[in-house]
Design a protein around this nucleic acid. Structure first.
Length: 460
RNA sequence: GUGAUUGUAGCUCAGCUGGUUAGAGCAUCGGUUUGUGGUACCGAGGGUCGCGGGUUCGAAUCCCGUCUUUCACCCCA
């Protein structure tokens, strides 16, 4: 229906049921954020372009939605620039604002800007939408929510341990069993790159390594060769491709590979510390797994890297990620502030819960009881009762239109049925005269004549 | 950004190699049922076949473009 209105690709409308389900997830995440001591902040939907541009790599810049300047913005562009048709140069001249791409960079900006008001270490959480000019796919949207928790101003590795606990707490509360929290450390990746003499190609190297479980060993080696990594280096990597077993045994293998790299050894130390902590504290339902091929995430991670995968029976990209960044605020001129944080992908968590039927049935129930509207006098009588019910914490409402000529009772009952309202109250002249209420259970069909106090008691 | 894919009633989909007034189920509305919904029966409304252009005597059907959907790559929540 081309005539009908539409919304841009990668965006969605949410109906009442969907909003109820999303709020359920929000509430669980928010409750746990607060339980772990995080405080909320909010930042604007759009930032100055130079705050965002260049922070996510070349690929990221391409995916940032730019906002056109107001007014007659083309008149300020020189003819030479205009005719050169250089989009990158042109963009910076006609667009000075952009929609935020994630919550971490705006948060870094916030910390630098408000550094004198903030009490460090600062633990904040932020639940807001972000925008990416990506092509939509399963679980990929152009507008989606991130739920971030970060700590800045502490280098303590106990923060990493806390974040793993936080992931576990949230997913356990959502009854999403069997999520895998993958952990790696940037220092390990740097160490490996150093050992194979490819320190200058760290990004290419890690991007290739990250694809191991997807495209296989041979293709990864091929990609590394095509990026100019020496064959001798790739041969040195061999033990890495066959790295298996539990956390401890993988660590042992890594020690063998990285014994000449100081940075690598530091990474191993950090991982061991975190693993010891988690072993002592235990996780409820999540599984912590060392994954040396985990390299995803932004260029700014310097220590731990996290990624959360949905249970294996669901085909979905990561539902959360995060890591340690030692110098994020440095890009805004504030040195030596270490930060670490994690993010929950609300929209993907929603899809996973939906697929596994894990939403509690009660999430979309909004109203406890509907009063049938027999007429003006009855309606007024009902509204008095409704007021009482509301004061007792019950969600109650009157059907707005009255029954005319005895008709439309069916319509009102139907309405209650369709909305899944569990109880209906009928008050006609008989009830009104006797000061009683007929309570009907919409599931069983059972009806009771009750006083107002009886009504309240039955509904509570 | 690269390569595919989808688009017919509010929803899910039929519609054979182009041929008279484009169908079904569900949903909606009305009736059977003027104090009782969820099941039943009867009936009604609702579509310029995504949009634009082209080929043809004739296009939902073929061609081109465009938008949209879904998927893979890139990248990522």
């Amino acid at each position: 229906m081309a005539q009908k209105p539409s919304i841009p690709k990668g965006t969605r409308d949410f109906n009442p049921e969907q909003v109820a389900k999303r709020n359920y997830i929000f509430n669980v995440i928010q409750t746990n954020f607060q339980r772990f001591g995080f405080q909320p902040i909010e930042t604007p939907s759009f930032e100055n372009s130079d705050t965002l541009m260049g922070k996510y790599g070349e690929e990221g810049d391409r995916l940032i939605f730019k906002i056109l300047n107001s007014g007659d913005y083309l008149s300020k562009v020189e003819d030479t620039l205009y005719t050169s048709k250089d989009a990158t140069k042109m963009t910076s001249r006609i667009s000075e604002k952009a929609l935020r791409y994630d919550l971490t960079v705006p948060f870094a900006r916030y910390v630098v800007q408000h550094q004198n008001e903030i009490e460090f270490p600062f633990k904040r959480y932020q639940i807001q939408p972000v925008w990416r000019a990506d092509r939509p796919q399963k679980g990929r949207f152009r507008e989606f929510y991130q739920c971030d928790a970060d700590v800045v101003g502490s280098t303590s590795l106990f923060q990493e341990i806390e974040f793993i606990q936080l992931y576990d707490a949230v997913f356990s509360a959502l009854k999403l069993d069997g999520v895998t929290i993958k952990i790696n450390n940037r220092k390990i990746l740097s160490g490996i790159a150093e050992v194979i003499g490819a320190s200058d190609k760290l990004i290419d190297f890690t991007v290739a390594l990250d694809k191991l479980d997807k495209i296989g060993e041979e293709k990864v080696k091929e990609e590394m060769r095509s990026k100019g990594i020496a064959q001798s280096g790739i041969d040195t990597l061999q033990p890495l491709f066959s790295l298996t077993g539990d956390f401890e045994s993988q660590i042992e293998s890594l020690k063998g590979i990285l014994n000449t790299s100081e940075e690598g050894k530091k990474g191993i130390e950090e991982l061991e510390f975190i693993n010891e902590g988690i072993k002592a504290l235990q996780l409820e339902t999540a599984i912590l797994q060392l994954d040396v091929t985990l390299a995803r995430g932004l260029n700014y991670y310097t220590g731990a890297i996290f990624e959360v995968s949905a249970p294996k029976n669901v085909k979905m990209g990561s539902i959360g990620g995060g890591g340690r960044y030692d110098d994020l605020t440095g890009i805004f001129g504030m040195k030596d502030v270490s930060g670490v944080g994690i993010s929950f992908g609300l929209d993907r968590i929603y899809l996973v819960l939906e697929e596994l039927h894990l939403f509690p049935e009660t999430v979309s129930k909004t109203i406890d009881v509907l009063f049938i509207n027999f007429g003006d006098a009855e309606a007024l009588f009902c509204l008095k009762a409704i007021k009482e019910l509301r004061n007792h914490g019950l969600n109650a409402e009157l059907y707005p239109d009255k029954i005319t000529n005895g008709k439309h009772m069916k319509k009102q009952m139907n309405h209650a049925n369709k909305r899944g309202i569990p109880f209906v109250v009928l008050v006609g002249t008989d009830e009104m005269n006797a000061n009683t209420y007929t309570l009907k259970n919409m599931v069983t069909g059972e009806q009771l004549k009750l006083s107002l106090t009886g009504l309240i008691a039955s509904l509570k």
